[in-house]
């Protein structure tokens, strides 16, 4: 029984981790309508910077948030401005897909060039110390991630719901042309949203770096799961991404324990394919978004 509880808790904590990675992805998709295949590499970049700041300056990894988050915002905004925006009017999907795939490839290999194939371990400052909760235990850092994910979801929801800019962002997401007719500067909203999504993954990077060794391909590892989460939660839905992440975290943890750790990925992606094919609006999506269906 304790084992089962522990497996469940591990799953929830993993879910929190997936959530914080996926939130930025779903935000960008929901507003800009672009699938950012380089999202994982944004995470990787953020983790490397966190590692650099922590090791070179000897600071607590969480302190690097003041540099990493603005830096990632800038990276996201620049990506939108320089790479995606010129392609927004393209007739074929393939140019946008290749643009972010190209960015992803370039970033992975740039990291290889700079940091080599070695693994970078960010000092964890006690974040890997377990806390006992009754019969089960959880890493301090994991718990912080979980809490941060919840706060991020709520904060984003409040921002989108109540602020003038938030409303403009939702307007652009729901009907770009009509938003333009209201006087909304749509390109600027896109840049802001892409930056915001990247900033979210920057926060994720800071929180994840002390727990996971950083390497050039760490992004691929996380982002494929993040895609699963985003599709499961309903594309563009932030609460959906959170609950989708919990589901995937649990599935991952349970299948890893009961089916075998080498097959858990197959289970997760199997679910992904089923959702994509059977219910592309996601488990929590209110309705079909016609943009990606025939």
């Amino acid at each position: 029984m304790t084992t089962f509880l522990q497996v469940l808790l591990n799953g929830l904590m993993l879910g929190g981790l997936f959530a914080i990675v996926a939130i930025g992805l779903t935000l960008i998709f929901g507003i800009v309508k672009v699938v950012n295949f380089a999202h994982g590499e944004f995470l990787m970049a953020g983790m490397f910077v966190t590692w650099l700041i922590t090791t070179r300056l000897g600071l607590h990894p969480y302190a690097s948030v003041i540099i990493v988050v603005p830096m990632m915002f800038l990276l996201g905004a620049l990506t939108q401005r320089l790479l995606i925006q010129p392609l927004m009017s393209a007739e074929d999907d393939h140019v946008q897909i290749f643009a972010t795939v190209g960015l992803s490839t370039a970033m992975i290999n740039l990291a290889l060039l700079i940091f080599g194939a070695d693994i970078a371990n960010t000092p964890n400052f006690g974040l890997r110390t377990p806390i006992e909760i009754g019969p089960v235990r959880v890493l301090t850092g994991q718990l912080y991630i979980f809490i941060a994910a919840i706060i991020l979801v709520i904060a984003l929801q409040l921002f989108l719901k109540n602020s003038q800019t938030g409303r403009a962002i939702r307007a652009v997401a729901q009907h770009r042309v009509a938003a333009e007719l209201m006087g909304v500067n749509v390109p600027r909203i896109y840049i802001l949203s892409f930056g915001l999504g990247a900033a979210c993954v920057g926060l994720a990077a800071v929180l994840i770096a002390p727990l996971y060794p950083t390497s050039s391909n760490i992004g691929t590892y996380f982002v494929l799961t993040a895609f699963v989460v985003v599709v499961l939660g309903g594309l563009g839905s932030i609460p959906g991404a959170f609950f989708g992440a919990l589901v995937i975290g649990l599935v991952d943890s349970l299948s890893g324990f009961y089916i075998g750790s080498d097959l858990r990925e197959a289970v997760v992606f199997g679910i992904f394919l089923l959702i994509l094919i059977l219910k592309p609006s996601g488990l929590f999506g209110k309705r079909m978004t016609l943009s990606h269906l025939s």
């Binding site: 699938v35 295949f37 999907d93 946008q96 494929l224 992606f269 990606h292």
Partner: peptide, 28 residues
């Protein structure tokens, strides 16, 4: 066959997912 309904990036994502599943299975 089941993926033809998917458009643009979603077809691409599905193709990546299939690749991952097959890679994991081949390891298993």
């Amino acid at each position: 066959y089941p993926c033809f309904r998917l458009r643009g990036p979603f077809y691409t994502l599905a193709s990546i997912a299939f690749l991952e599943v097959i890679r994991v299975l081949s390891l298993h």
